[in-house]
């Protein structure tokens, strides 16, 4: 076609515009830079100890449980939702596993699967309330957070199931705590599970139609609907899937602490949101990535660890995490504003 009879849309992209376009296409780049710069600064302040395999392994173990929840939270935030009940679902699942194996005397493998199913059921309840009754996710999961916590107290009677009991009767529940030793490196099976799940979710979000639909539903539900996507079905399935992941997180939690405690998930809800947001996923939906969330979880882990090793009081850990959250959300807002 000649240039005379066809419309041409020329691109006048200046340097600033190109940088913005690049940031749009690669939302993980900022969290990645924060992580690298953070690591560089901490290694300067703390010295060799910081990069010692022992320390790095420790940080990975510390972020594993929150990392699992943050994976579930990522899926939900990508749909422009939020799940305040992830921590409660995780604890309820772990209590379900422990109680079914030790109090009800079910075979441990069955108890494990049933515990994950409890997580799935909790997620399905959230999804049902959000899609069927069309209630806002914030309110629904605030409500179910309380309800699931009540179930935890009811079922566990406030009692912890001790490590030795589990080891004796249902060792499979502690399987995720098994450590693989590579020289000074220590990798728990829980961390392996978390990283494997992250790879799986990455594939799902980026290489399947369902994954693209999750982004579309979060970014512009009306556009998704007009494109033939059943938005309600996508939303429900995302909450269900998040519930199952929280169930798995319950298993990882038992491996991490050894016991089944009704008190395990206190700040986990907000920590998972923190990791997702610092990882560059937008609370307005449709923007973000699994890799960003992993980086976000690592940033939180390394900041806590680095500041502690530097000898600073715990309050500065909280302070710095708070600053990171506000900067991450501020950056996201700015990027959205200039693109309109």
């Amino acid at each position: 076609m000649s240039s005379d009879d066809t419309p041409h849309f020329s691109e006048h992209a200046g340097f600033g515009r190109r940088v913005i376009n690049f940031l749009h296409g690669n939302p993980t780049i900022i969290p990645f830079l924060v992580l690298i710069i953070g690591l560089a600064i901490f290694s300067l302040i703390v010295g060799k100890r910081f990069f010692h395999p022992f320390n790095l392994s420790l940080v990975l173990q510390q972020v594993t449980v929150i990392g699992m929840l943050a994976l579930a939270q990522t899926l939900i935030i990508l749909t422009a939702g939020i799940d305040l009940s992830v921590g409660a679902i995780m604890v309820l699942s772990s209590v379900a596993m422990g109680q079914m194996a030790l109090t009800l005397g079910l075979p441990p493998e069955i108890a494990l699967l049933a515990g994950i199913a409890v997580g799935g059921a909790c997620g399905a309840l959230n999804g049902l309330l959000i899609t069927w009754l069309r209630l806002p996710p914030f309110i629904v999961t605030l409500g179910t957070w309380s309800i699931f916590n009540a179930f935890v107290q009811f079922w566990s009677r406030g009692q912890t199931i001790r490590q030795q009991e589990i080891a004796a009767e249902a060792a499979i529940l502690q399987w995720t705590g098994t450590a693989l030793q590579f020289g000074a490196w220590r990798l728990t099976l829980g961390s392996v599970l978390m990283l494997g799940l992250a790879a799986l979710l990455w594939y799902m979000l980026n290489r399947t139609a369902y994954g693209r639909h999750i982004y579309a539903v979060g970014n512009d539900p009306e556009a998704a609907r007009l494109s033939g996507i059943s938005t309600q079905r996508v939303l429900f399935s995302v909450y269900l899937l998040a519930g199952v992941i929280c169930g798995l997180a319950g298993w990882v939690l038992i491996g991490r602490i050894g016991a089944v405690s009704p008190l395990g998930g206190g700040s986990a809800n907000l920590d998972s949101i923190t990791a997702v947001v610092i990882g560059g996923t937008s609370l307005f939906g449709g923007r973000g990535s699994i890799i960003g969330t992993l980086i976000g979880a690592l940033i939180v882990g390394f900041f806590r660890n680095g500041l502690a090793l530097a000898g600073l009081d715990v309050l500065w850990q909280e302070f710095s995490i708070g600053c990171l959250i506000i900067m991450a959300v501020g950056f996201d807002q700015w990027l959205r504003r200039i693109s309109n």
Binding site: T208, A209, R212, Y215, A216, D220, A223
Partner: peptide, 29 residues
């Protein structure tokens, strides 16, 4: 009816994506 945060290709095929032939498309979607 386009999702602004998705790419041009994603938007062109939104809701009617092509899957790979064979095992990878059928089973791995």
């Amino acid at each position: 009816a386009m999702a602004p945060a998705l790419t041009i290709v994603d938007n062109l095929f939104l809701g009617r994506e092509y899957r790979k032939p064979g095992f990878r498309g059928r089973w791995l979607r």
